[in-house]
Design a protein around this nucleic acid. Structure first.
Length: 572
DNA sequence: GCCGTTTTCGGCCCGACTGTTTTCAGTCG
C-alpha cells in the first residue's frame, strides 16, 4: 500500500489529540502536531524518502523517535502507539473536540463522568440536563452545546475569491466608523492561502471609538460569539467567522505581524526574540518592561535580525533561515506578468469572441495573449478539430497583421487522451506557437496508468505547458492520483513547463508544488484559464499562489517578451 | 518529543474572552 504524507500527518494529529485528552505533557503534544505539519507540507513523499533511506531527523522538529514512527507508518500503514492509545481511550472522543468550546479537558470530563463518547451521547445528556451539573460546566455551556449540535455543519474552508469579497465589505464598513484609522485583514487571508478558515481583522482607532459595537452590528451577522474591549468574534449568516482585534496605533506593526501568522512562523520569530533577550507580543517588542518597537511590522523583523519576510512566505518553511542569510527570494509580482497563456473564446466554451478577448488583453497592458480553445475530444464544448484550428490560425495571422506591439499567440488547450496521445495530429500542433495540454477525462485511473498517460503525452515534442496539473477543484474534486514530484521531474527532463492555473476554484499547481517545480528548475506559466474578458482579472490569485511557492519573476515564462517566450518554449 | 553560542537537562510564545468561579481554568487563535 502507498502511504501519503497526509496519512502520516493524520496519524500524528490523532496521537496529539489523544495525548491531549489524556492530559499528557503539552510540549510532547506540540511535538506531534509540529511533525504532522512538517510532513503534511513536505513536497516530497515520505514513502519515497523511506525507500531512498533519507534521514528524517534532518527535518525541523523530527528527532530519532518521530523519524522511527514515520518509517513505521510508511512500512505498515499504521502506528502501534496510536493503537495502544486507542485501547486506553475511545478515539471517537476526537470528534467531540471539534465542537467549539469543547477542548481536551472538558471532553475527558464528559467521558469520565457521563461516559459520553459520541455526538449522540452528547446530545442525549445535554437534553437530559446532565451536563450543566458537571464541575466546570454550567447552564450556558450546555445550551451552547445543544445549539451547536443542531447547527448545519459547514466545515468547508472558504475559497480566496469569496474571502476577498467578504473582506472588502467588512473593511469598507469598519473604515467608515468614527475614530477608526487602520483596518486590515491579516491571518491566512493576508498570507494568500488558497482557502481560509476565517477572517482575522486588525484595526487601530482613537480612544472612545465605538468600533467594537459597530462590528457586532455589521449587517450580515448571524451570531456574536465573543465581544470584549479589544477582541470580538462574529459568525456571519453565511457561516463565515470573523475576528476583530483592536490595538493602539503604536502597536500596529507588532499586531499585524502577530495576527498575520502563521502560528508556526510566529513561534519561530518569538523564539528568536527570547534568545536575544526580547519579548515579542502583539503590542510590541519589549526589552524588560520597556517597549522598544511595534509601530511598523519591519521593526519586529529588524529586532530579531531578519530582513522583511513577505506574508506569503510566513509558514516556517525555511523563510526564517533564508532571511537570516539574506537569501529570501525576490517574489514575482502582478506587474511582472506580460501576457495570459490560457484563454477561451465563444468558439468553444468561452463567452466572448476572439476579437473581444484580444482587445481586452491589450487594454490591460499585456503584450500578448494565447488563445487556447478546447480540442475536439471535449465535444460538449464544440472543441476544435484540425480543420477549424487551421482556419482559426489564419484568422489570428490576419489579426496580428493589424496589431502593433501586441501578439496573438496561436495555441490550443489540447486534451491528453487516455492512451497518452494528444487529441490533434502533430501536423497541426507544429503550426502553433504553443500548446497547453490537459486532462479532462478518465480522472480515476490508477496512479501507475495516470502517470504513464501523462508522461507519454509529455514525450510528444509539441507538448509545451501542462495545464492545471493535478486536476483538482477546490472543495469539489480531489486531484487525480499522480505523483507530482515525478511529474515535475518528467517535465524537467523533457523541457515542458507547468501551469499555475489562477482560477480560485483550481489554484493548480498547489503552493508546495510551485516551490518544488522552481527548485527542480521547471519553468512555470501563470494563466487565468479565462472564459470571458473579466476572467483576466483572476491573474492575481495565480501570482499569489506562485509567491507562496517562493517563485521569482525569472521562473515564470509569461514574464518574458513574446519573442523570448517563443524561444524558451522550443524544446531541445 | 525536540533541542542546544546559557548544550544532554530543563526549558519549550503569548494573550484575550467566557463561564464558572470567587481568583481562575479552559478554550481559542
Amino acid at each position: 500500500m502507498l502511504v501519503h504524507n497526509s496519512d502520516v500527518a493524520e496519524i500524528f494529529n490523532k496521537v496529539a489529540d489523544l495525548l491531549e485528552i489524556l492530559d499528557e505533557n503539552p510540549f510532547r503534544v506540540r511535538a506531534y502536531r509540529n511533525a504532522a505539519r512538517t510532513v503534511g507540507s513536505l513536497s516530497q513523499s515520505v514513502a519515497a524518502m523511506v525507500e531512498q533511506a533519507k534521514d528524517f531527523t534532518e527535518l525541523p522538529g523530527i528527532g530519532k523517535d518521530l523519524a522511527g514512527k514515520i518509517e513505521e507508518i510508511v512500512r505498515t500503514g499504521n502506528l502501534s502507539q496510536l493503537q495502544d492509545l486507542e485501547d486506553r481511550i475511545p478515539p471517537q472522543l476526537i470528534r467531540l473536540m471539534k465542537i467549539p468550546g469543547l477542548g481536551p479537558k472538558r471532553v475527558k470530563t464528559l467521558y469520565d463522568r457521563l461516559n459520553i463518547t459520541s455526538l449522540e451521547d452528547l446530545k442525549k445528556s445535554a437534553e437530559a440536563g446532565e451536563i450543566k451539573n458537571l464541575k466546570g460546566f454550567g447552564e450556558k455551556t450546555e445550551k451552547a452545546i445543544l445549539a451547536e449540535l443542531g447547527r448545519e455543519k459547514k466545515e468547508e474552508r472558504i475559497k480566496l475569491n469569496v474571502a476577498e469579497e467578504v473582506a472588502n465589505g467588512v473593511v469598507n464598513y469598519l473604515k467608515r466608523v468614527e475614530g477608526v484609522s487602520e483596518v486590515i485583514v491579516a491571518g491566512s487571508f493576508r498570507r494568500k492561502k488558497e482557502t481560509v478558515a476565517d477572517l482575522d481583522i486588525l484595526a487601530t482607532c482613537k480612544k472612545g471609538s465605538k468600533v467594537m459595537d459597530a462590528f457586532v452590528e455589521y449587517g450580515n451577522v448571524g451570531k456574536v460569539v465573543a465581544k470584549g474591549e479589544t477582541r470580538a468574534t462574529i459568525v456571519l449568516r453565511s457561516g463565515i467567522q470573523m475576528d476583530l482585534r483592536v490595538v493602539p496605533e503604536a502597536s500596529y506593526g507588532a499586531a499585524l505581524h502577530y495576527f498575520t501568522g502563521s502560528k508556526a512562523h510566529n513561534i519561530a520569530v518569538r523564539t528568536l526574540g527570547v534568545k536575544g533577550g526580547l519579548k515579542i507580543n502583539e503590542y510590541g517588542v519589549f526589552k524588560g518592561k520597556k517597549r522598544i518597537a511595534g509601530k511598523r511590522e519591519e521593526e519586529v523583523f529588524d529586532h530579531v535580525g531578519l530582513s522583511f519576510i513577505e506574508p506569503e512566505l510566513r509558514e516556517d518553511q525555511g523563510e526564517i533561515e533564508a532571511a537570516q542569510q539574506g537569501k529570501l527570494p525576490k517574489l514575482i509580482t502582478l506587474k511582472d506578468i506580460r501576457g495570459d497563456l490560457h484563454a477561451h473564446t465563444k468558439e468553444t466554451d468561452g463567452r466572448h469572441t476572439l476579437e473581444q478577448m484580444v482587445e481586452a488583453a491589450r487594454n490591460r497592458g499585456y503584450q500578448y495573449v494565447a488563445i487556447t480553445d478546447h480540442s475536439k475530444r471535449l465535444s460538449m464544448t464544440h472543441g476544435f478539430d484540425a480543420k477549424r484550428l487551421a482556419k482559426r490560425n489564419e484568422e489570428i495571422d490576419r489579426l496580428n497583421g493589424k496589431l502593433k506591439g501586441f501578439s496573438v499567440l496561436k495555441s490550443i488547450e489540447v486534451d491528453i487522451l487516455e492512451d497518452g496521445s494528444l487529441d490533434l495530429p502533430d501536423s497541426i500542433l507544429k503550426e502553433l506557437d504553443l500548446t497547453v495540454c490537459s486532462v479532462h477525462s478518465k480522472f480515476n485511473l490508477p496512479m501507475k496508468k495516470q502517470m504513464e498517460r501523462i508522461i507519454r503525452a509529455m514525450d510528444n515534442p509539441y507538448f509545451n505547458v501542462f495545464a492545471h496539473p493535478s486536476g483538482r477543484l477546490i472543495n469539489e474534486r480531489p486531484p487525480y492520483d499522480v505523483d507530482m514530484e515525478e511529474l515535475i521531474k518528467a517535465a524537467k527532463e523533457r523541457g515542458c513547463a507547468m501551469e499555475v492555473n489562477a482560477h480560485p476554484d483550481r489554484l493548480d499547481l498547489a503552493d508546495i508544488h510551485c516551490r518544488l517545480a522552481r527548485d527542480t528548475g521547471v519553468k512555470l506559466v501563470i494563466s487565468t484559464d479565462a472564459h470571458s474578458v473579466n476572467d483576466y482579472d483572476l491573474m492575481r490569485f495565480g501570482v499569489w499562489q506562485a509567491r507562496r511557492g517562493w517563485v521569482e519573476k525569472e521562473d515564470v515564462l509569461n514574464t518574458r517578451s513574446a519573442d523570448e517566450l517563443k524561444k524558451l518554449l522550443k524544446r531541445k
